[in-house]
Design a protein around this nucleic acid. Structure first.
Length: 668
DNA sequence: CAGTGAGCGAGCTTCCGCTTGACTT
């Protein structure tokens, strides 16, 4: 009789089957196989009358969860059950993280396994790692399973607990949750800051300085101080457009700037000091899911959702390793393969003597290695036969992986300090001496400081060929792109590799956010929801909420904290009471730039209110583009939309929101 | 008297995380 090995992904199963041979049968669970009921129709008849049925958790009965097998998993379970019955032993080879342990336990229960099972764990899919894992099985870790269940229960209590407060206060079908609400709050804070931003004018004075010598080229220097006082730049102004009261900087007028220009042209400059220092840049680590999404967004203009679809195809085609991972670590065979490619392309000097190793961040679960070309010999991109987006993404992964094992970039950075009477100027430049890994991979979009500076001596006087003053406006805080939001969430430990792309889709489906070009803006609805949650559930929208949850779950996994005690503290003594005490009614969003104007919700619509008159607002009107004239037109009943609106922006409001956007199931 | 339509009321919505196809837009 055979040994049945159960993994999560069928592509992974196929590979492992090849390593283990015919004495083993490797099958996939396709992820989680049991879950709390999502909708009323999923609740078994015998529980439908229970008061806790909607939550799917019997809170009074010790937070007992009600698990069902979702319809699309019934066939999988039936097959696994049959195979398990024929096998002598079952190896639960789901991922080596908290969710994987949970899936393993659910498999034990759903398949009715009785003692003839063991847990098999590996962190890379190489023949060596798999053979060792089969030899070194362990029992199921029930404390870790308890941590996974606690995570699942907490998320259900947050989501299904708080969402109804939104239905009653703002509109039906709206949603809140530990992850999506933290993400929405981060977006909304930025949007509010942009709406409140008052730009300030500041002057910059630039000089074209001519060095001595034949064929010398002028270089640019910028005025940084006058009479020892630094000139004010964007950082010195507050959101109100005024110079910050504690700023020591000098904000010059246009007149002063013009005088400085004339002064520099007449007097020239003197070299006060030359500073030169060596610098080096290390290659970035191999890709994790989050960094892949960021790089694909920058380099290929590919959104996170698309990136994951293409990566999935590369993975299924055996081109790359698993694409949902939080670890940048390379296996030994991958490290060797990367170094071999670098040597083949650029010679033995292109790699450091010792291989580089990369460690994951503290909160990572490291069930997989980094995203890299598959196998122990990396195929060059043009040898793969791939085309289009698949080729582009593969090339990105290939070059990043190989570059991670190459030498540092070495360069020299020079800063010239110039003086002209009381006027201080600076010019800086960088020179690359050895490009190192950047010969293969370069994602440094920072192009400033790249001018090459001439050799000048301290004390030398140089003529100013030309000088000019320019007035600039302090920029509003930048919006998030999809990739930068994911980066921010990952840094805060919110969300997982399998959900990053999905978080944004949820916020879009709820019409909380939408794209303008490649930037996420928050709709009026999103702002009202965020304001309500901030008022009534500040703990939920705090980015630190998940950090604390993770700490508590770790204690549960370590056996230091009991699941029921934790959930009682969190829910019974905490969130459940907050929900009961929450105000039911929408918040009134005051617009700082428009006195007397308030945005709020009435009868399932977002409205603008002034002097008691309420007018519906179009959701594709980008909040920070609102002008005083726009307010007048809206109040007069005109539909105000951005002129160039097209594509992804949600159009207007519909009284019935479509929920997830999926068609409702027809009654059979 | 049968068919239509306005108006009303009841019931439902919702989470996060792990996986792929099978479905429409």
């Amino acid at each position: 009789m055979k040994t049945l090995v159960i993994v999560e992904s069928p592509a992974k199963g196929k590979k492992i089957q090849g390593y283990l041979g015919s004495a083993y049968k490797v099958k996939a669970s396709f992820g989680h196989i049991r879950d709390l009921p999502a909708k009323k129709e999923d609740i078994p008849k015998k529980y439908q009358g229970e008061a806790w049925a909607r939550l799917g958790i019997d809170v009074q009965g010790g937070f007992q969860p009600l698990y069902i097998i979702p319809a699309d998993k019934k066939a999988v379970i039936a097959e696994l059950k049959k195979l398990a019955g024929e096998a002598d032993e079952v190896l639960l080879a789901t991922d080596g993280d908290r969710e994987g342990e949970g899936i393993a336990w659910h498999l034990v229960r759903a398949l009715g396994l009785k003692g003839n099972f063991k847990r098999m764990v590996f962190h890379e899919i190489t023949e060596d790692a798999i053979r060792k894992a089969v030899q070194n099985t362990r029992p199921l870790d029930y404390a870790l399973v308890g941590a996974q269940e606690s995570r699942r229960i907490l998320d259900r209590l947050c989501g299904y607990g708080v969402s109804p407060a939104l239905w009653q206060s703002i509109g039906s079908g709206l949603s809140a949750g530990r992850v999506q609400s933290a993400a929405l709050a981060a977006l909304a804070r930025r949007e509010r800051a942009r709406m409140d931003h008052v730009p300030a004018d500041y002057w910059r004075v630039l000089a074209q300085v001519m060095p001595e010598g034949e064929g010398a080229e002028p270089f640019t220097a910028v005025v940084v101080s006058i009479k020892g006082q630094g000139l004010a730049g964007p950082k010195d102004f507050g959101a109100d457009g005024q110079l910050k009261s504690d700023s020591p900087a000098l904000a010059i007028t246009g007149e002063q700037a013009a005088r400085t220009v004339a002064f520099l042209k007449a007097k020239g400059v003197k070299v006060a000091k030359v500073e030169t220092s060596a610098y080096s840049t290390k290659p970035p680590a191999p890709f994790t899911t989050s960094t892949l999404q960021q790089a694909a967004s920058r380099a290929l203009k590919m959104g996170p959702k698309r990136t994951m679809e293409v990566a999935q195809r590369l993975y299924e085609g055996g081109r790359i390793t698993y694409m949902r991972t939080d670890s940048p670590a390379l296996s030994e065979e991958a490290t060797e393969a990367a170094r071999a490619v670098a040597v083949g392309l650029f010679g033995a000097g292109s790699i450091p003597a010792a291989p580089r190793t990369f460690a994951a961040k503290g909160n990572a679960q490291e069930a997989h290695e980094a995203i890299r070309p598959a196998g122990k010999d990396f195929k060059a991109p043009d040898q793969t036969g791939l085309a289009g987006e698949e080729l582009s993404l593969y090339r990105l992964i290939f070059t990043r992986t190989v570059a991670s094992q190459m030498t540092d970039l070495q360069g020299s950075k020079t800063t010239l300090h110039l003086k002209s009477g009381g006027v201080g100027l600076q010019s800086s430049g960088r020179v690359v001496l050895d490009p190192g890994f950047t010969r293969l991979y370069n994602d440094d979009t920072d192009k400033k400081d790249e001018q090459q500076l001439p050799n000048v001596a301290e004390g030398q006087a140089l003529p100013v060929q030309d000088a000019r003053a320019e007035v600039k406006k302090t920029p509003a805080p930048g919006r998030f792109t999809e990739a930068s939001l994911i980066k921010a969430l990952e840094n805060a430990g919110v969300g997982r590799p399998s959900t990053y792309a999905n978080i944004i889709e949820v916020l879009k489906n709820r019409q909380y956010t939408a794209l303008v070009k490649d930037q996420l803006y928050v709709t009026w609805l999103g702002l009202v929801v965020a304001a309500y949650l901030q008022d009534q559930f500040p703990a939920l929208v705090d980015l630190a909420f998940t950090v604390k949850m993770e700490r508590d779950l770790d204690r549960i996994a370590a056996g230091e904290l009991q699941r029921e005690a934790y959930l009682t503290e969190f829910w019974t003594n905490g969130l459940a009471q907050t929900i009961r005490a929450a105000r039911h009614g929408p918040p009134a969003l005051a617009l700082n730039k428009f006195a007397g104007v308030v945005v709020t919700a009435r009868q399932e619509q977002i409205v603008m209110v002034r002097d008691g008159k309420a007018v519906p607002l179009a959701l594709d009107l980008v909040p920070d583009t609102l002008t005083p004239e726009g307010v007048e037109r809206i109040m007069a009943g005109e539909t105000v939309r951005p002129r160039a609106s097209r594509g992804a922006a949600p159009s207007g409001q519909s009284k019935k929101r479509k929920g997830t956007g999926k068609p409702r199931k027809k009654a059979s």
